[in-house]
Design a protein around this nucleic acid. Sequence first.
DNA 1: GGGTAGATATGATTTGAATCATGTGCTTGC
DNA 2: GCAAGCACATGATTCAAATCATATCTACCC
Lengths: 208, 208
Amino acid sequence: MTIDWDEATTRQPLLRVMPDALRRVAVLHHFNAGETLFRRGERPKVVLCVLDGEIRLVRHSPAGAEIVVQRSRGGFVAEASFEAKVYHCDIVTAEKGRLLLFPLPLFRAALDGDRWFNRAWIGLLAREVRRLRAQCERLSLNSAAERILHYLEAEGDQGTITLTQSRKAWAAELGLSHEVVYRTLRKLQDAGTLVVDGDRLTLLSRER
Amino acid sequence: MTIDWDEATTRQPLLRVMPDALRRVAVLHHFNAGETLFRRGERPKVVLCVLDGEIRLVRHSPAGAEIVVQRSRGGFVAEASFEAKVYHCDIVTAEKGRLLLFPLPLFRAALDGDRWFNRAWIGLLAREVRRLRAQCERLSLNSAAERILHYLEAEGDQGTITLTQSRKAWAAELGLSHEVVYRTLRKLQDAGTLVVDGDRLTLLSRER
DNA sequence: GGGTAGATATGATTTGAATCATGTGCTTGC
DNA sequence: GCAAGCACATGATTCAAATCATATCTACCC
């Protein structure tokens, strides 16, 4: 199964600067929902890059409940492989999709041997940290309006943003039910705080 | 003002593998609450490492509200400096403390020139990503009990954890009011789900 | 075309977390 | 010793988000 690198690169720009030696050993894997990719206790041997679909890192509580420790709907899932001797979670698929597998030792070697790939990787991680810290701040706000305004301020450009996902998916990212997102958008519009134009949201400056 | 590297290293273990050349150019800065360290639009020239106290990256919404994009109560704040040509936020102090300043070009040079420091930096970022993703998952749960159980599962070892912070601070990390944390801990104890022994929390396996 | 699935959208009801109030006990500093 | 400040803890009340219900609109498949 050959990999369409142009298509993969649009989904994950870091792949553009990935050294050829590492690209050549990549394996494309198609998965369906409900597969178990790796189990707790196994030794990590690969770095994952999700292209499509959703995978989850889950633990099972003693009471039997399933705890989602993290999920990925696109991008690298490398932290677990890099740091730990064994997986502390099961890695399962939640929604049909595709991912790339890179052998861990070769991935490390590429980071050590290729300065540009190394810098790009650090940049990717740093951006992810920034984005996640902002998201945690946002999720700590306890009103729907505050979360939406925080999103516009933090992720938008001059208070304007074009949503690239459905409102339902956005609601999930905001940690809100989609109903509340619809209602709050309406309230903010009626109050003159916000203008909604399709997927384009603009924060209005309130005259004082 | 000389820097006590032993003390600093206990707060931030990465400093142990930092090359001497970079250590020698570090500057220690004591700050009080309410100082503005950098302003939006300035060009980043340093990497920060918070030892004590709290600093925040804030934006001001058109409506005049202050939006906390991220906060740090310890550890590196480098993402902004690394990625952007100019700061997109003001960086202000929220609580008296100390931080280390590293000149940005020398920090980059150290990452390029010292393999061990480079690997340690990548490891630090990767761990932070993992921790933050777990925290976002947790903050998306909408009951106090679920968040507490998720914390025990994700951050604990075999369902046991020793809190290293006050319950109030923990409540803030969970995105809950401290009152709800007290009440929910009591409820979980009464239900036999959990044992609280001072700062030691243990999840009990429910027989089925 | 008809049927299904899903996003969008809004209303009614319930529920649980925030908030306010209050009190205890522990430290810290004078 | 005493006061101030703070973490810990619990009760009463309020309020807003979750949930359930329902309807429209679109896209897609047969």
